[in-house]
Computed example of a mutant assay.
Amino acid sequence: MNKTLTMNNTLALNKTSPLKKPTLVVALGGNALLRRGEPLEAAVQRRNIAIAAKTLAALSQEWRIVLVHGNGPQVGLLALQNSACTQVAPYPLDVLGAESQGMIGYMLIQELKNCLPDREISALLTQVEVDPHDPAFQDPTKFIGPVYNADQAAELIKLKGWEMKADGKYLRRVVASPLPLHIIEGAAISTLVAHDHLVICSGGGGIPVVRSDAGMTGIEAVIDKDMSAALLARQIKADALLILTDADAVYLNWDTPQQEALRHTTPQTLSTMHFDAGSMGPKIRASCDFVTATGGIVGIGSLEEGVAIMRGDKGTLITPSSQTQH
């Protein structure tokens, strides 16, 4: 299949039989499942996942879907709950990441099955190899957990030794976010896709593991799910990548009177712009890496508008230079 897709020929491809549909990796943000300011409760998450399931069900009419979800709010909550028990040593972040894959994967399977009762839907516990010497371990940038005011953050820094950074007008815990190098279960994911499963995998960016003489072992980190989704999309030879988040598009001068939405753009144009390392920056980097490496397309936008984003009607669409729409 020609990897350089325009919006028009993508729609043409989608009219073929189900197993001939192009493959779309969808990166669903943890903040789209538990939105900023909402309580970190199961009922709230289920409500948002029900919205996500409807979007994914609609996308599945035109695409074979592989879903990667974030876990920033969820793994941060697990870390808080985990540290509250003083009788045992806290579980490391890689184990908590695995817990979040099971928790979110269960809810996604249930809601997707309600929308698509005849589809095979599988959630796969997924490990992702990282470099133990990645410089990210010296400069944590990945936000996890809820937001705090200055007094709350100061107390947590004192009690738990956590590192905090500004997230908008609040403070939030940050942890190391090394670059993903290889999806360990990539071949299994490809097999499930080939058998027409809607696959949920690499949750939270994947469980971070490092390779040594003794084999694979976990490491304290949370992998950026957008970078992991872009790597997965390349590894399984997907045709497109869709990043669903709590913003309706990519903006220049975000949260200022001069903010401006980018509707259609290219990696070359985006390379001249600056985006925050703790939020939109990794999404832009992941998108540009995928488009440049494959000639595919990337959509970025809000959860409810997934189909419209991939058709170029909403959000931001990133294409190779020759495919840019005006």
Rank of each mutant, 00 (worst) to 15 (best):
L231F: 01
V68Y: 11
K20Q: 08
I184C: 10
T217S: 15
S202P: 02
I200G: 00
D131Q: 04
P146Q: 11
T292N: 08
N149Q: 12
D118A: 07
Q101M: 07
L11P: 03
A277M: 14
G204E: 12
A43M: 08
S122L: 04
T126Q: 12
Q235G: 13
L156A: 13
N71S: 14
L24N: 01
L156P: 09
Q258E: 15
M310S: 12
D276E: 15
K165A: 15
I49T: 07
A238L: 09
L179D: 03
T191Y: 08
I318E: 00
A43F: 08
F143W: 10
L156W: 14
R35N: 03
I219F: 04
V26S: 01
A176G: 10
K158V: 10
P282F: 11
N149V: 07
L198P: 01
K165G: 10
A188V: 03
F275Q: 03
R64N: 15
I236N: 00
E62M: 07
W63F: 15
V68L: 10
A89F: 05
L156E: 15
A153T: 09
V199R: 02
A247G: 00
Y91S: 15
M7G: 02
I223S: 07
S100H: 00
A12H: 12
A12Y: 11
M7L: 13
G161V: 08
L252S: 09
N31R: 01
P73A: 11
A136D: 15
T4V: 14
Q323Y: 02
T269E: 14
D246L: 03
M310Y: 06
K20D: 04
M7V: 14
I219Y: 07
G102E: 04
M103D: 13
A153I: 11
G29I: 02
I284T: 06
Q127L: 12
A153V: 12
I51K: 03
I284E: 04
G76M: 12
K225S: 01
S271R: 05
A176E: 03
M107V: 00
A42F: 05
T265S: 13
H195N: 11
I189S: 00
H182G: 00
Q101H: 08
K15W: 06
T324L: 08
L116G: 00
D151A: 11
D224L: 07
A308S: 14
L67C: 15
G76L: 09
T319N: 07
K15G: 05
A176Y: 07
G30M: 01
A308T: 11
Q258Y: 14
T10V: 01
P320F: 08
G76K: 06
V307M: 06
A240K: 02
S322V: 11
A32I: 02
D276F: 14
A153E: 13
Q110C: 00
I121S: 01
E62W: 10
I207V: 15
V307C: 04
M310V: 08
N31M: 02
K169W: 05
A154E: 14
G315H: 08
L181G: 05
A247F: 00
M7S: 13
S322A: 12
D313K: 11
Y170S: 15
V95D: 08
R234D: 04
I104M: 09
K160E: 09
I144Y: 12
E62G: 14
L59F: 05
